[in-house]
Design a binder for these strands. Sequence first.
DNA 1: CTACATGCAAATGCTTTGCAACCTA
DNA 2: TAGGTTGCAAAGCATTTGCATGTAG
Lengths: 143, 143
Amino acid sequence: MKERALRMTRQRKLILEEMRRVKRHLSADEVYAIVRKRLPRISLGTVYRNLEILSELGEIRKLEYSGSVMRFDWNPENHYHIRCMQCGRIDDAPIPPLVDIEREVRGVTDYQINGHHFEFVGLCPSCSEKSTDYMADKLRKLI
Amino acid sequence: MKERALRMTRQRKLILEEMRRVKRHLSADEVYAIVRKRLPRISLGTVYRNLEILSELGEIRKLEYSGSVMRFDWNPENHYHIRCMQCGRIDDAPIPPLVDIEREVRGVTDYQINGHHFEFVGLCPSCSEKSTDYMADKLRKLI
DNA sequence: CTACATGCAAATGCTTTGCAACCTA
DNA sequence: TAGGTTGCAAAGCATTTGCATGTAG
């Protein structure tokens, strides 16, 4: 394993800037759409590569939740999220992290615990307007 | 929305049987490999379709966590999991579900809460043997 | 200068789907 | 016998990767 000498390229800088500016939980594609306005020749591959590197550096955070598309959080601080099961929108959850919960399982399990993930799932304001109770009930099974 | 008259085909029955027999958290591909021993002409598409239907019926449970492959739990009861960040193996977590936590955010958020997901991440026994502390530290960033 | 990074396009890998034939109720 | 279900193959889609070229340090 050798050290790597990372470079602050125009692309990398711009991606980080825009993530911090819009302060949303963006997918790679959304980041691509946003940075392309200022750097039209940037490629989607570059966006993916940089989002990966920036999260390894701890500048942003890759959200390890369910859902078909990967999302990235401009805020690398440890916090929970709430996800719309209909449209995939993600917001911060209004509860603090459960700091002691990992201690409860250490020793009880033969896994080496490194962390935990938590998210609420539900319907965002705009999706719950559209959904009837019946639909919500159908969807509940799929959580 | 009309009722559907589902049928218990040989394929569907076998998939459910095998899930309940092996009692592991299987991917579609693993289920495919297992049921193929008894029904060699079954197709992967059929496995996917049935896993989907069986989870809608509540017979099994689709695991909505991160990771590139979808996994299914033979046990549809509400419980948490612990996932190996190296090999993707999943086991049940030895803590009971946080029954009251959803109440904490209702009203505080404008989302309509329908549930929550929780998982521990770490290294399974066999992967933690292989990993050095350095590696585990590298990986910790990627949680 | 020299590696790391980029743009582009092709490749990958999991999952879904269209369709004709098949089978369960 | 109706219509849900299957096998097969093709399509879909997010993400990754190979490679020649570009560029930050």
